[in-house]
Design a protein around this nucleic acid. Structure first.
Lengths: 226, 226, 226, 226
DNA sequence: GATGAATGAGGGTTCATTCAT
DNA sequence: TATGAATGAACCCTCATTCAT
């Protein structure tokens, strides 16, 4: 996530052997970082629950345990808070997928890993709400959609295409369909997140099982009974 | 679409043999219905462009060519307008899928038909925005999600399961995977709509081709080169 | 006041012999105009009392007997309200001075008339506060200062210079000092307004008498004891 | 300037023969005084540029090179800062006028001196902004206006009246008009300051020349061509 | 029915002031 | 003493909703 959408206040990493002054600064900075995160967490909750436009910064502040004005010490305005929230949550995830895809394990193993990463890092966490927010609000935040495409999606798609090309060479897969439409590899996770938000209370969905059979089909793979 | 979410103002159907007064009434009623539709159309545009919370009834009224107060003659409030808008757009679609699925044509044909129905009736029309609205705003409108599930999704899923059960009996399909996870049959259309809203400008997606290979995979079917 | 700073909502002058519809429109328009004026009057009071920045639109609304939002039906924002307020008050005054100066009465008479116009139309009315507002806030509202210069001051200065040139020709005045510094003709009124706002409670000023002796001096004129 | 409007933090004057501790204190005190002045200077700039209400203490602090909180170590609040700022700037000026007026030089000479004092000490310096601030904000700061009247204006007016009374005795002036309206002696400087702030960019004003002809007129004096 | 002026609650943002460090 | 992060009251402006015409 090299290119930040907006430069965040510098957060020097605490190091050993620093002077007292530096330590004090570190402490102050650590507290500031904690506050920043508290606000981001609260914002995620509120934006998820009500959507960007209907969320109230008053509620974000209350939930974060700060005064309303404090938010403006860390974020330029509501929109900046929203965008930085997405970045903050997304940054750590891309790497995980990239390294999974870079490995030379059998494709089947990689797929299983990817499913587990998705469930552990996204579906089972607040990041699921981040995905939903991108889906819901993205059309109204072109910068956000562009950033997400450039820094997340394009990178994952590229890594997937590379791995699939190798797989095709080796005969792990039979055709180039998934190289032409790598988006399909994400269809199940998108479906899972949306289903969960809308219909899970009517008809719960076993996401892991669903994803497994989904990828089995995509890769024309047979699998024993689950 | 038997159960309405909210009772709409009565719209007596015009009949033959009516008196002049009735005719006048009919005319008035026809005009009223046209107005209602104009408002719904305008509302779809505005809600799609800005989301429910950020859309302004002022803009809806202007776009519909009516005064702001007029909206309240046809809809209780903003939320009712939104919900009825979804219903109004959805009503005609379910039937098409149901009858396609009810047919005894080969599964492959039905799938091809469903793809075309989706592209013609949804992806190529404003209903695509309706889908997006359900996805985006559904979590904040439980009644809406429930209605959509009950009146649309459940019915389509049921019809699909029925057809798939017959297909399994006849050996058209090899296993019950899609009967257990019929949601997968909708994954590609969800993906198409979301991709279009977020990333099409960066990387356009050939939706028809994508859906064809997608269903080929789901049904473990081979197909000649496109 | 030909060039308006901002186009005001059209205020068709009521005419005889109009249709019922026009009459209705006229009534509505008349009421709207009255409301507009009420807001402008209230705004003048509040802006005068607290200055532009510290004045609260809440108070303006309360004083005008309208709701806060109503102000925004008539004025784009606080600044527009302020600027239109100045224009509204100023428009009628320039003409009075221009015609006084255009006359061919003896200079002494014209001066006496101008003093009376000033006292009657400005010093004795709310327009005195308008002058104060221009003086106080003008430096922060360059458009306003420019407008005032162009539409009011430059026109009055021009009319004065013209009359003074004729006076010089006729021997009514002895030199061109006032043609070179016509600003001096306004010094006493500026002084009067400022003194009134700041020091009148400590040392009241007989403005009419002061202005008379002032112009006597400026025109090197003798006058009997007042 | 005997009576202070508000007691300023004690500023013990540095004296000779003090102990090291006292010296340190003195140093600290000198630094404190410098800081106070820096804040006052910055405040003058900001208040002049934006007016009292719209000026931000944040900007004052930044401009003065201190932290926001530091301002509150030297001034009770924003209003105190404003008022002390006026006093601080005004204190040195009154004396100059008083001694000019006390002299027994010919009236014409005194007037010429006063013009030069005005231009050098006020019009050509930041004190011009102070005058503008008094004119603009005075009506909202009755204490300030009263202080200014009592400590500055009344003293100058008194000195002027005294000198004029002597001039009348000696036949330097022909009547008591300026004794009755000594305010007129200040009209030109008020006009100069206001004109400069509002209209100089449209029509520059030669202030010295204007003031000379102005006083020539007031004193019914002839002067050779400039 | 239709209009659109009027309402006023609500929310984003600012900024004087405080206070822990 | 000096700092500047934190506070929260205040205020401008928007917009869903109402209602007189």
């Amino acid at each position: 996530m090299a290119t930040a959408l907006k430069k965040a206040p510098k957060k020097p990493v605490a190091e050993a052997g620093r002077t007292i002054a530096a330590s004090r600064q570190g402490a102050r900075t650590a507290k500031a970082a904690a506050r920043r995160e508290a606000i981001l967490d609260a914002a995620l909750d509120e934006f998820s629950a009500r959507g960007f436009a209907a969320a109230r910064l008053d509620d974000v502040a209350r939930r974060a345990g700060v005064a309303k004005g404090t938010i403006y010490l860390y974020f330029k305005d509501k929109e900046a808070l929203f965008q930085e929230l997405i970045l903050f949550q997304l940054s750590p995830v891309v790497g995980a997928f990239e390294s999974a895809l870079a490995s030379d394990l059998p494709l089947a193993t990689i797929v299983d890993q990817a499913i587990e990463i998705f469930i552990r890092e996204i579906y089972g966490t607040h990041r699921k709400e981040v995905m939903r927010l991108i889906i819901s609000e993205g059309p109204r935040f072109p910068t956000l959609a562009e950033f997400y495409y450039r820094e997340v999606l394009a990178r994952i798609l590229k890594a997937m295409r590379a791995r699939l090309a190798r797989a095709l060479d080796r005969g792990e897969i039979a055709d180039d369909v998934l190289i032409r439409f790598p988006q399909l590899l994400g269809a199940a996770s998108v479906l899972a997140v949306i289903w969960q938000g809308l219909f899970d209370r009517f008809e719960p969905l076993d996401v892991r099982a669903m994803m497994r059979v989904y990828f089995d089909r995509l890769f024309l793979r047979a699998r024993g009974p689950t």
